[in-house]
Design a protein around this nucleic acid. Structure first.
Length: 488
DNA sequence: ATGTTC
């Protein structure tokens, strides 16, 4: 019996096993590419340049095992969103396009002990107060408007800076990936222009798909893990999705231009200029890594300030201290990062720059980098769906280290461009429908943003999560549904 | 994603 194949207009994928497809190595590819998806998801993934892009990434020097496209993959700048590339940290390279423009775009979930019953009737007051108190939209205006010295501290110290300056508590550090601080950060590697863009954006949501959402837990699929995560049905939680704003964007741009200029030889070997990479050990690889780590710290501070401000808003709306409402950080996960990690490859321990772009770290139970509180069950993984579909909490699955360098998907993944979305939807209509049909209260700076983020522009998050769960890379723990949503 | 076309 011949192997099952999937023909995607010029690219043929061979099925390795259920939900695992391979683009075999050929020509100048340095490894195969793998796509983790159902056929239903492949039907959507093949519609843009995702497959060509994941194939292109296998040309990067040092690519280890295979390049991986997650079930929510879609076209990105050079490297697909939903892509994982582990590049040898000694003989490989590091690629800003494989991290993404929005460095450490990510999500954090905060628990409360409120129930949906207690919140009902307060939705409009809450959404208005959140919208008034959490800066959003394009341009400047943050919770903190910083001077140069403060920006440098934020860049080098991450969430430690926030906690020391009254924007959180010690416990917040423990429930953040890397405890909210990348040691290798060096603020001097971030340009003045990037700092200028970021200094008045510390504590701001931004625009696009970024949001703050109050949600209710509708399902707990795994009681044991749910208990470890402090989640139960009807509980209110808050999900914050944002990144490093103009600072991260400028940093990505700065280094792409430098790398294009200084590493033309490597660039010429790559099928797409947008994959520009700095060879491991070069000055620029070192500088970019330090700058990226600083931008990662900036994004964590951004989410920390927004979370702490949200506590204060809840205090006013529900008239009691946030501690009494047990508003603790469940976890903060990065969606756009690279990190030097040690992984077992062919029985050998190897140092790799694991690039996760639109992909989530998903370390399994027992991994030393999983916070103590969750070590026995695995790292929390938070997957936002669209604002009408709901969201998932997963836990790092036991197969993630073998299959995906400890990673899984990051969201639903777009189905259409922002331009197309605005042709098909009208923000006001979307807003009205969500409120009338699903009692979801949305407030945004711009109607265009609501249209761009309409539920219909996203893939089916249930299907993405089903594949992650079936592969054992990220297992279903709980599902949440929106109550209030604010965005840019 | 993004001082939304360096």
């Amino acid at each position: 019996m011949s192997k099952s194949t999937y023909d995607a207009d010029g690219i043929t994928l061979e099925q390795v096993r259920e939900y695992v497809w391979e683009i075999p190595q050929e020509g100048d590819m340095r490894a195969p590419a793998r796509v983790l998806a159902s056929e239903a998801l492949l039907d959507e993934i093949k519609e843009d340049k995702t497959l060509e892009q994941i194939k292109n990434t296998t040309h990067l020097p040092g690519i280890t095992n295979y390049a991986i496209c997650m079930p929510d993959g879609h076209q990105g700048y050079g490297f697909p969103v939903g892509g994982v590339g582990a590049l040898d940290a000694e003989n490989g390279c590091i690629s800003p396009g494989a991290v993404g423009y929005d460095i450490n775009c990510g999500v954090r979930m905060m628990r409360t002990n409120l129930t949906y019953d207690e919140l009902q009737g307060h939705e409009e007051e809450l959404v208005d107060s959140l919208f008034a108190n959490v800066p959003s939209g394009l341009g400047g205006g943050g919770i903190v408007e910083a001077g140069v010295d403060t920006v440098d501290e934020v860049l080098e110290r991450g969430v430690e800076w926030a906690v020391e300056n009254g924007h959180g508590v010690e416990g917040d550090l423990l429930h953040c990936e890397d405890e909210g601080h990348r040691e290798e950060a060096d603020a001097s590697k971030i340009s003045q222009k990037a700092k200028d863009r970021g200094k008045n954006q510390i504590g701001s949501l931004g625009s696009g798909n970024h949001f703050l959402e109050v949600q209710r837990v509708t399902d707990v699929f795994d009681e044991k893990v749910g208990e470890a995560y402090g989640l139960e049905e009807d509980q209110i939680v808050v999900l914050i999705h944002c990144g490093s704003r103009g600072l991260g964007h400028q940093t990505c741009n700065d280094y792409l231009r430098k790398i294009e200029q200084q590493h033309q030889g490597l660039l010429n070997q790559l099928p797409d200029k947008e994959l520009a990479a700095a060879p491991a050990g070069s000055q620029l690889a070192d500088d970019y890594y330090k700058a990226m780590n600083a931008a990662i710290n900036f994004a964590w501070v951004n989410r920390q300030l927004i979370m702490h401000r949200t506590r204060q808003v809840f205090e006013r709306v529900f008239d009691r201290p946030w501690e009494e409402m047990e508003m603790d950080l469940l976890y903060d996960v990065a969606h756009n990062i690279a990190k030097k990690e040690t992984h077992e490859v062919d029985g050998e321990q190897r140092e790799l720059f694991v690039h996760r772009k639109g992909a989530t770290r998903a370390f399994p139970a027992g991994h030393p980098e999983v916070p103590k509180a969750y070590r026995d069950v695995g790292q929390p993984v938070i997957i936002p769906g669209s604002m009408g579909a709901g969201n998932y909490v997963l836990r790092g699955g036991e197969n993630s280290m073998d299959l995906t360098f400890g990673s899984t998907a990051h969201g639903a993944g777009r189905l259409m461009s922002r331009t197309q979305a605005k042709d098909e939807f009208w923000g006001g209509d979307v807003q009205q429908q969500l409120e009338e049909q699903d009692q979801i209260y949305v407030k945004a700076q711009s109607g265009a943003t609501v249209a761009e983020e309409a539920p219909g522009v996203y893939k089916d998050v249930d299907e993405v999560v089903r594949v992650s769960d079936a592969l054992g890379i990220g297992d279903k723990v709980a599902r949440t549904f929106p109550v209030c949503n604010i965005k840019g």
